[in-house]
């Protein structure tokens, strides 16, 4: 039984490693060279292009809905919910 479990564990580890390798290999073929970052370097291409708008929106939706965070921390902060 223990031997079977060991084989299963080994199989799980091997498949996890394989998945991770495929993902990393996949990611390494994605992306750009440093001299191809002209568009990505623009302010409007930042993941949070307007932090002020994001902060104000988070406050509104935190106080009106039951979900928060996801993009950034959605912890405490105000007694509005």
């Amino acid at each position: 039984m223990a031997k079977r479990q060991n084989i299963m564990n080994k199989f799980t580890i091997q498949s996890s490693l394989l998945t991770a390798t495929i993902l990393l290999t996949g990611c390494s073929s994605l992306g750009v060279q440093p001299w191809e970052r002209d568009l990505l370097a623009k302010k409007e291409m930042a993941l949070t292009a307007s932090p002020i708008d994001a902060a104000l929106d988070d406050h509104i939706y935190f106080s009106k809905e039951a979900s928060s965070g996801g993009k950034s921390f959605g912890g405490g902060g105000c007694g509005c919910n």
Binding site: G31, V32, E36, L39, L47, G69, F73, G74, G75
Partner: peptide
Amino acid sequence: DLMLGFTQVINRRMITQFNYSYS
């Protein structure tokens, strides 16, 4: 709050982000 994030540039025009959060 705990957060794991992964950001990936796809090509010259596209960037993506994936987060998992636990609170």
